[in-house]
Design a protein around this nucleic acid. Structure first.
Length: 587
RNA sequence: GGGGUCGUAGUUCAGCUGGUUAGAACGCCGGCCUGUCACGCCGGAGGUCGCGAGUUCGAGUCUCGUCGGCCCCGCCA
């Protein structure tokens, strides 16, 4: 661009726009950044200049007519350098940190012009997420996004420092690895050297990190990308980042404390207090009380079992459910006794949508009111078990146990938390002792709930062959406000136990050898007792940023349709690439 | 794989039970303006109503299909 004011050599930045303060008054500075906004007053032109640290106001005055003319040509998102003197403003702008000062320009250099951007670069975003993703480089210029990138950096740094301080070494593991036989769908990578053979991108470095324990590394961690070819959600991406940790000679209490300290360090970055130690809730209890394996403890409601009232009470309906092997669960909602008939009907519809046959409600207002017809003594008993008061509402579901827990659990989970202070709390807990196996309807066999290397409780081992579904595993999920923030387990380090697990999973020796060959070999060369965890880094940063989607803290995320709207990936490849890999597309 | 919801100027949206010239705000372009900071004032340009079929005298509006965004279920060891 023709620019008579340009100095012979490019202007060299001395300061960030956003870093200038009243203390810089009188200094000659050079700022480099993007034109955020111009206000052309005729003989006076104001330009807000933006860089990653913030905004500064630059003023061009008519006593330098050529310079002023150049300034009038500036448009949004032009990249410029400005030299000038810092001075106090005649009227302070209290809304921005640099509002006390401005830069009186004496030189301007346009490094690059810009097309008119598809949306205005400003907070909050004035564009749909679709458009923001397509022009992510513009979206990321927004101060809020810059802060999130920085926060993510600081969180990774804090995690590294914390774990390093506790004796953990960050060790890299392969991205090109073997397909995982159980679990999520793998991303496959064809091999050019071996047609018909494939690498897989790791769902997690699980086997490698355990191998590092066998290798004597003792304490490993890695902030590592993981890949799962599954449906995307607000809190799930095809590729995501874990803080992956593994420890030898592990003491579970110490390990919980280590991880709680890590949370303390991370949330300390945003000035949030973390209350320790975290509550520990066995899986079975979590399901009974909250109907969820990741309870949101900000919701101050708990379920109770009322099956005995069905069995011993006067209601033929409840009696029938119990006789048929069902159970009765109750949820007391304090202060909800005033709900109208219409609101109660809505709740009933919601329960039905969740698969319940019906929802029973009970109130105590001028005598008992309920959708259930039964003796007063039954209501008295329900009230006594649930601890109800006059203004309260009780919701009951009589059904198969899992169904009843699920329905009331969902009502509990989505019940609005009125108290703002309560809503803002960080409610961490450990949910421990998940079942080792769960039945797969699809495969008609038991599959690992966590993964096949998870240690069962010794006292449950005798159930392995007779009632595998009743075997508890030494697992632990870290749950924060109803979101699974991390999960891990103590691993099996004895080959004989590992063999019994594989047998219970219905795998033959040949299959296990083919699928886990090297790893079983490794376990038989002196494996230390060990265990570990993996934290969802994106989800944690999301919490730190106060956001509700991990896309807000990932620079270049994919849409829920698995597309990258900026790059257009995934994309087709030409025939030569396929030929080289020995691949042929169907149809 | 299934359900819900959205798609209209560059952007965010409005547009009624189908009706003749599709609007607003911001942005953009031009002009004026010496203290603005959501600058102001005057003027202007800008539309394949996501795409494709269908119903109808007539479709932004109704139907079907399709593509895309978001949310949820399944799935996510």
């Amino acid at each position: 661009m023709n620019n008579p004011n340009a100095t012979a050599t490019p202007l060299k930045r001395t300061d960030y726009c956003g870093a200038l303060r009243a203390a810089d008054e009188g200094r000659e500075v050079v700022l480099c950044g993007w034109v955020h906004k111009t206000r052309d007053m005729g003989h006076l032109v104001f330009v807000d200049l933006r860089d990653r640290e913030g905004l500064a106001q630059v003023v061009f005055q008519s006593d330098r007519p050529t310079l002023s003319e150049e300034a009038k040509k500036l448009r949004g998102e032009f990249v410029v350098g400005v030299r000038g003197r810092v001075r106090r403003r005649s009227s302070v702008n209290k809304d921005i940190p640099t509002g006390e000062i401005e830069v009186e320009a004496d030189a301007l250099q346009v490094f690059a012009a810009s097309k008119v951007p598809p949306f205005v670069v400003a907070d909050p975003p004035q564009a749909s997420e679709e458009l923001r993703l397509k022009y992510r480089y513009l979206d990321l210029r927004r101060p809020v996004m810059q802060r999130r990138l920085r926060l993510r950096h600081e969180a990774a740094l804090a995690a590294r420092n914390y774990l390093s301080k506790h004796g953990y070494l960050e060790i890299e593991t392969p991205i090109l690895a073997n397909p995982t036989p159980e679990g999520a769908r793998d991303f496959l990578v064809p091999s050019r050297m071996f047609h018909g053979r494939f690498y897989a991108l790791p769902q997690s470095p699980q086997q490698f990190k355990q191998t590092l324990m066998v290798a004597g590394c003792d304490r490993y961690f890695q902030i590592v990308r993981c890949f799962r070819d599954e449906a995307l959600r607000a809190d799930r991406q095809l590729e995501f980042t874990q803080i992956d940790i593994e420890t030898s000679f592990i003491d579970r209490d110490e390990f919980f404390a280590l991880n709680e300290g890590l949370m303390e360090a991370l949330f300390g970055l945003v000035g949030r207090k973390v209350e320790r130690p975290f509550r520990r809730i066995p899986y079975a209890e979590a399901m009974e009380k909250y109907g969820s394996d990741k309870p949101d403890l900000r919701v101050p409601l708990e379920m109770r079992d009322l099956t005995a009232i069905g069995r011993e009470g006067s209601s033929e309906i409840l009696k029938g459910v119990v006789a048929g092997g069902g159970e009765i669960k109750g949820l007391l909602i304090p202060g909800a006794g005033g709900l109208s008939r219409g609101q109660l009907d809505k709740l009933g519809e919601k329960a039905k949508a969740l698969g319940a046959k019906g929802l029973i409600w009970v109130k105590k207002q001028d005598g008992w009111k309920s959708s259930l017809k039964t003796a007063e003594a039954d209501f008295e008993r329900i009230w006594s078990v649930l601890g109800g008061g006059a203004a309260d509402l009780a919701l009951l579901v009589a059904d198969k146990k899992d169904a009843a827990l699920k329905v009331l659990g969902e009502i509990r989970r989505t019940w609005p938390v009125e108290d703002a202070a309560r809503r803002d709390r960080l409610e961490f807990c450990w949910v421990t002792d998940f079942p080792l196996f769960e039945w797969s309807e699809e495969e008609k066999r038991f599959v690992s709930m966590h993964h096949p290397f998870t240690m069962p409780y010794e006292e449950d081992l005798h159930l392995l062959e007779t009632s595998p579904d009743r075997v508890r595993a030494k697992t632990y999920d870290l749950v924060l406000n109803g979101v699974e923030a991390g999960g891990g387990s103590i691993r099996i380090h004895q080959m004989d136990v590992q063999r019994r697990i594989f047998k219970a999973l219905g795998l033959t020796d040949e299959e296990t050898q083919a699928k886990f060959g090297y790893f079983l070999d490794a376990l038989s060369y002196g494996a230390p007792p060990h265990g570990g965890i993996a934290h969802g880094f994106d989800r944690l940063v999301m919490f730190l940023a106060g956001e509700e989607s991990i896309r807000e803290v990932i620079p270049f995320p994919k849409t829920t349709g698995a597309l990258d709207l900026m790059t257009g990936s995934p994309s087709a490849v030409d025939q030569r690439a396929l030929d080289e890999l020995g691949l042929k597309l169907k149809g």
